[in-house]
Simulated assay, not measured.
Amino acid sequence: MPGRLEGKVALITGGARSQGRNHALTFAREGADIVVCDIAEQLPSVHYEMAGPDDLAETVKLVEALDRRCVAVQADVTDTAAMSAVVDHGLEQLGRIDILLANAGIVGHAPFADITDEEWDDMIAVDLTGVFKSFRAVIPTMVEQESGRIIVTSSIVGRTAVPGLAHYCAAKWGCIGLMKTAALELAPYGITVNAVCPTNVDTAMIQNRHMYGAFAPDLADPTREDVYDAFVSVNAIPIPWLEMQDVSNVMLFLASDDARYITGESIHVAAGWNAPNVA
């Protein structure tokens, strides 16, 4: 039986590991070929270990083990020329791009007045400007095809506020406005544009001592066990964090024909974090 994405090509940014890799494997299992890009190097303002070239190569290996084609490019989403080159290479190798998952992102925490210029600039550059440049890079080919699915990884904190995450909240709120405007502009061309807003996800972005410090500021060296209850406390459903597959399943739905008339929407995969809010 054909997969839900049979014959499609998906471009996934930030695909060297974690959510991006899991999305790539989920889409490949459903028949898609994959173009994956990642900066695959460390940003000085990021306080946890980022993915590297070996991680990007591992994503390719795992996709190909599912008998799907995979094209990988080391590229920075904040670089216009680099993102254009990713799209051009994907088209050259695989012939089309049907789906964009604008997934690349970073996170960090600091009190508002302590956020440095470098931390602010990098957060906005990667988590918002990088989304814009990824969108812009794929739009011409999707308009020409008169079809496409664009999905951005926002966050539940793109729908609310969290002390210590001002720069991250600002970027993720910005993604929602960007997505909604693109949805209106691209609807006449058969292109849908949506956002997924997860609560905390069990990935390296969350599972590191820097982020633990946001949830256990009184501890000098907090562990996963130390912050477990604090993570549970933000969700209505009593879990600390989502599994990556929980997010991939929603990405798959939005990329499939099942969601052909859904556009301009923010889908909350938030274990009820958002339940008290109107939006």
Results as ranks from 00 to 15, higher is better:
5 L>P: 09
6 E>K: 11
7 G>C: 10
9 V>S: 06
9 V>A: 09
11 L>Y: 11
11 L>F: 13
13 T>S: 14
14 G>T: 12
17 R>S: 14
25 L>T: 14
26 T>M: 14
27 F>P: 13
36 V>K: 04
36 V>P: 07
41 E>N: 13
43 L>C: 00
44 P>L: 05
45 S>K: 02
47 H>W: 08
49 E>Q: 15
52 G>P: 12
53 P>K: 14
53 P>C: 12
61 K>Q: 15
62 L>N: 09
63 V>P: 08
64 E>S: 07
64 E>V: 00
66 L>K: 08
68 R>D: 13
69 R>Y: 11
70 C>I: 08
74 Q>E: 14
84 S>M: 09
87 V>E: 09
87 V>A: 09
88 D>C: 01
90 G>A: 10
91 L>R: 08
97 I>G: 10
101 L>D: 09
101 L>Q: 12
106 I>C: 06
107 V>M: 10
111 P>V: 00
113 A>R: 13
117 D>W: 04
125 A>C: 00
127 D>G: 00
128 L>I: 04
129 T>C: 01
135 F>K: 03
135 F>P: 03
136 R>W: 00
139 I>Y: 06
142 M>N: 07
143 V>R: 15
146 E>D: 13
147 S>P: 02
149 R>A: 12
152 V>Q: 07
154 S>W: 08
155 S>V: 11
157 V>M: 11
158 G>W: 10
164 G>S: 13
165 L>V: 11
165 L>S: 12
166 A>P: 03
169 C>D: 11
171 A>Q: 02
173 W>A: 03
174 G>S: 10
177 G>H: 09
178 L>E: 00
183 A>T: 08
183 A>W: 04
188 P>F: 01
194 N>H: 05
194 N>G: 04
195 A>Y: 06
198 P>E: 07
201 V>W: 01
201 V>T: 11
205 M>Y: 04
208 N>E: 01
209 R>F: 03
209 R>K: 14
213 G>S: 05
217 P>Q: 01
218 D>M: 08
225 E>R: 11
226 D>H: 10
229 D>K: 14
230 A>N: 13
231 F>S: 04
239 I>E: 07
239 I>Y: 07
243 E>I: 06
247 V>T: 10
247 V>N: 03
247 V>E: 05
249 N>V: 05
252 L>N: 06
254 L>N: 01
258 D>Y: 04
261 Y>V: 12
262 I>V: 15
264 G>D: 11
265 E>C: 13
269 V>H: 05
274 N>M: 14
